[in-house]
Design a protein around this nucleic acid. Structure first.
Lengths: 208, 208
DNA sequence: TTGATATACGGAACAACGTTCCGTATATAC
DNA sequence: GTATATACGGAACGTTGTTCCGTATATCAA
């Protein structure tokens, strides 16, 4: 039978496909993301895929259909949470004076990272699935921190010669140490404060 | 002629081992450590055990006899390198003024960490084999940095309220980002400098 | 030297993981 | 209601870390 000429074919890029996404597929994707978020927070990003699939009530095949690699799943979950954290900056900027907004967001950011067991390592593991993550991370967070930084600098509270991205990375890495450790969290916080003092140091010298 | 009468019986601590350590065993242990050091530097601490065994010219069984866990091997290699890095501090302290010696050692330390792909993550992974590492790390590095810090503080170049250990951890974590990345190394360096500026900031104010 | 034996060796075998495959089930379009 | 594209579950595969054990050998006593 040569019925190769199928009836519906030209659903090229960006056009409406003949069939819409199946409801169960969508439901399962959500379930997987939700389960993954929970499992990652508990057991770190190295948690077995099977565990996530089970928790989501699907088979591993289903999971892999949507996330071809465990790294893709990690990336997807990560993106979601980045969005959430970045969003808090605006609120802070409105509710507090520049210097305080900056510090508060930095703390929020620190807490955000604290729930990312092993993620910093994964980011630099060379896995191609994570290649896009730093860019996403940066695209979301840099403008946000730049605003806070600029406002604080304008108020004469911090220096201007530190790039937002550098600060972002520095604090992110600083925070890796405190994961799952009470004393570690305290250390992280004081080191972040030290960094902020470094920021102020410059402002003092340049401000007069 | 009576000679073979115990030329080595109670060496170390009151123990009298019937047989001494076999020569081939010792040789293999060295070979494994050497191979592991090279492989870890190249491929990170997650490199396959088999690869290390092969490179050392031994079977995996032999490797596991001495290092019951891959983590134990990682720990052993790590300890060696910690010793080497800590040792450089004394030299520096003798050859440079306090402030400079401090900064130079901090840089040396940064370079040291830069070759430790993924090790910071391993340290906090919860693997029991690494539990002793932070203590070892601290026991070796803290006194060393305390000396440098104290000398610099005495010279009025830095503040006194930052604990050596915190600084150690902070820089270590800061350095994780720069692994295998040119720009990353530069970022790391400037963040370390920012930290040092934070140290100086306090010194300036502490005139009281 | 020679034999006895504790010790060490290599690599096959096992378990747990990430990932692939494919026969079966089902939501959607007509 | 039927056809069929789509999604599903889970067995199966390759690669890890680790264990096991039969074989080889360095050391000791004679």
């Amino acid at each position: 039978m040569a019925d190769t000429m199928t009836k519906h074919d030209f659903d090229s890029d960006g056009n409406a496909p003949k069939r819409r996404v199946r409801a169960d597929a969508q439901r399962n994707e959500d379930a997987v993301l939700e389960a993954a978020k929970a499992v990652f927070a508990t057991a770190g990003v190295d948690a077995p895929v099977r565990e996530i699939a089970t928790r989501a009530g699907v088979g591993v095949g289903t999971l892999y259909r949507r996330f071809p690699t465990r790294s893709d799943l990690v990336a997807a979950v990560f993106r979601r949470e980045v969005d959430a954290c970045a969003a808090t900056a605006e609120t802070l900027a409105m509710d507090y004076p520049p210097g305080e907004a900056l510090v508060r967001w930095l703390n929020r950011y620190t807490d955000f990272i604290a729930t990312k067991k092993g993620l910093a390592a994964a980011l630099h593991s060379g896995d191609p699935a994570f290649d896009a993550l730093p860019d996403y991370f940066r695209a979301k967070f840099e403008p946000v921190l730049m605003s806070l930084l600029e406002a604080a600098a304008a108020a004469g509270e911090v220096r201007r010669d530190i790039a937002a991205y550098d600060l972002l990375r520095a604090i992110g890495n600083l925070s890796v140490a405190g994961v799952g450790d009470e004393a570690g969290a305290a250390h992280t916080r004081s080191m972040v404060e030290l960094l902020v003092d470094g920021l102020r140091f410059g402002a003092v010298k340049a401000g007069r």
